[in-house]
Amino acid sequence: MLGFSRTKWVGVERPDPETFFAHGILEDNIYGMELDVWVKTPEFVITRLEGKMRRVTTPVCEQALPVLKNARGLSINSPDLISTVNRKVGREGCRHLANLLLECCDAIMRCALYERWGELKKKGAAKDPGAYLKEQLKIFPGLQNHCRTLFNA
């Protein structure tokens, strides 16, 4: 028997060249929530957040939505992003909302990381994916040594 199930979905749009907009949804047997996150380039700073709690466990949970403002001004490039969001949005607000926010931030980062690859491919100029990723470290220096592919890049 299925005892528990959780789905997280994130879509990222580019409303203008300086903005990434992510819409995230978290649904599981206990919680249901949505989040909109705006991130400005070139600093990749969170400028705006809007949340919605659909299904929660206490009458107090919705008070976590205003706590989202604690994430305004954070850079998704920061090495402390996870710990800061978990503390300032999670412990001070709701840890499931913090989880969804981190999912949205990661999705935006991946979107930005791979964005130029699509353009290069269209132009027929895309060559080695590994070399492309290493080049993107200029935009995301925090990813240096992030994984096997980017080790000693």
């Binding site: 028997m1 299925l2 005892g3 528990f4 199930s5 997280k8 979905w9 879509g11 990434f20 979107c111």
Partner: peptide, 22 residues
């Protein structure tokens, strides 16, 4: 506007007949 990127993540836990979790 088309999506520039999409992610779908799903996770689940189900009870096995031997009492452990899959």
């Amino acid at each position: 506007m088309l999506l520039s990127y999409a992610r779908n993540k799903h996770a689940s836990a189900s009870d096995r007949p031997d009492g452990d979790l899959l």
